[in-house]
Design a protein around this nucleic acid. Structure first.
Lengths: 201, 201, 201, 201
DNA sequence: GATGAATGAGGCTTCATTCAT
DNA sequence: GATGAATGAAGCCTCATTCAT
């Protein structure tokens, strides 16, 4: 029964492919990225990729989902501890800065799928975006329950916070700001958002 | 003066190519877009494009610059009239909503170049982003001169405002909100930003 | 208007491709034959073939139809002159021997499409087979009108004659008989068929 | 005697592979047929096939030989009993109709190898064809010994009879005739061939 | 200047075959 | 012996680019 041999090995290879795929897709985009190169980087044969993923598109989507899961986990754990909305928004911001820095490939490729023109992946990216948004919505609901804040549409507000947070980081990148500088702005940013939300009422 | 007539014809053809390129690139992205289709839509021969642009990449960049110029013009004219910073931020927001709606192809393709993964285009898009940012910086400087507001880094602040404005529109799209709904939020958004800025100090 | 330039050149190229395709398909069969090699043999670029034929399959079918037309023409002209059924069957046989010899690639590939297992082409080959059969049916009808022969189902009889004629030639090939020997058997074969038909009544 | 048991098991597996190979090759032809599918259908691992056959080509040839043996056996037993040449030709025809119906996979794949385009298999198929032919030659010799018929080249005549018989069946297939209809024509066909042979003298 | 037929590099994908377990 | 995961050669096809007309 050689099949059962390596459930772990299989999963490890899958991870390695996804990891290299993220690098390559982040570097070149979906179309320019080469399955061949991904295989080489992952240290496996060209054909082996097709034992793990149906085709290039499915590999990309699997990678996208993997990225989203891993980022979601990071975000959830950042928001796990209790605290005021202000504090938690700051933690959220820090978590994103961390992701953008440490998993910059993943961050890039995800942003690209979301804001890029390739409609094929926008649908999936949007679906994942809502997962992110849901985590923030939860935090908002708790803050509302505690009377910290009021708002009309929790989903819309959550999405806006997410969008703003990403927006901060993206523009910081354009400015060439380092992670350190960005982290220093965490508190200010949280307050910015909070103030903004209050102003909306 | 047949030279001028030819010059005009040439410029007209150039515009037509760029216009169709924007449509095609917005629809399919850089790689999936086809030179062939662009030529057909522009009503010219495939080879003719290469009399106007060195290659696909240069066509894309030329298109990007054209879009940026045209959007800049729209933004400048929106901010032309005097007024409080609050009012002008509202106008800025309205101008972007307008662009995103009426020139959605251009807006898409520009966002994609900016947040997309293709570094080659990111560099150029970033350069253009700074042009946008400069317009906003000017407005900010005027407001500071009038004592309406204070801030440390005018460029960073301008970039942030730009980034936030785009961010609002992008997230509205994800939510599927119409232009009408977005325009209704113009005033609130302006106040959001202004409050946020104040909080930052 | 460079498009109109060469309607003839285009047709010539098309012919050359089909000719080389027949050689290659006859040599290796549909799957083993390489578009690349066909292009090389035809002295054109790999991609050029796709300007003339949608894909490999369509090239094969076009070739099949071309072969059928050309063979049909040969057969029709062989049966053009009047004469007794006996004479005309002999002429038919000679025409097939000629085809099998001079256009052996075409003959091979057609037989292969007809009797091979590749269902994809059997349908088309069968359709063409009926065209052949129709020519023979015409000859039979004329013979019947002249009272030379009687039979029940003209189509079935025609098909049988065709099938037998091909069968003779195929088995002669297996025996390694030359064209000369085969031609010597023309008269005997015609009589064989005629006797056989009579026996059927 | 565990050796014999193993030998039997081995032979049984070999048979099963050949059987499924025939199904698959008959369905899709040599190139389109998949070793993978054959292994699955045979209920063994993909690699196991290579313990029984050197490669795909050898499997095909082995299958061809197996089919030929099994068809030869059927034909021999059909011609086993004494009788007039007329009767025996009828029996031969019936045997072939039976084979074409009951072992249509085998029949198809054999015809395809014989008339198909792949020279590699044609050589082997021709060799087998001569085995068939030899059985018929034996019948002819007996008939000649009894003074029923005369002919010059017994091998050529035998091959022709075989070829014609197959030809009848193949054209009946094209016409879409059922086995029943074909069997009804057995007597007529035998007479057709006999008459034809007589005419040849 | 304009054209589009021709080109061929490049890429995804398949699948017979190998070999470590 | 049996297995099937891994391999990589091979092939179809696309499409940006060239260039003769």
């Amino acid at each position: 029964m050689p099949k059962i041999v390596d459930e772990q090995t299989r999963e490890a290879t899958r991870r390695r492919i996804i990891h290299e795929a993220a690098r390559e897709f982040a570097r070149l985009g979906f179309d320019q990225a080469s399955i061949n190169v991904i295989a080489e980087q992952a240290g496996i044969g060209k054909g082996t990729i097709y034992l793990y993923f149906e085709n290039k598109r499915e590999l990309f989507l699997a990678m996208l989902r993997f990225i989203a899961q891993s980022q979601l986990t990071a975000i959830r754990s950042a928001l796990a501890q209790d605290g005021s909305l202000d504090t938690r928004l700051e933690l959220l911001f820090r978590a994103f800065v961390q992701l953008a820095e440490e998993e910059s490939d993943s961050f890039n490729v995800y942003m690209s799928a979301l804001y890029g023109v390739n409609r094929a992946f926008q649908a999936e990216a949007t679906r994942l975006l809502r997962d992110y948004s849901a985590v923030i919505a939860l935090v908002l609901e708790e803050a509302r329950a505690r009377g910290e804040i009021t708002f009309q549409d929790v989903d819309a507000t959550a999405l806006m916070i997410l969008s703003l947070t990403e927006s901060f980081i993206l523009s910081a990148r354009v400015l060439g700001q380092s992670k350190q500088i960005l982290l220093l702005q965490a508190k200010k940013t949280a307050r910015f958002i909070l103030q903004g939300l209050t102003a909306e009422q």
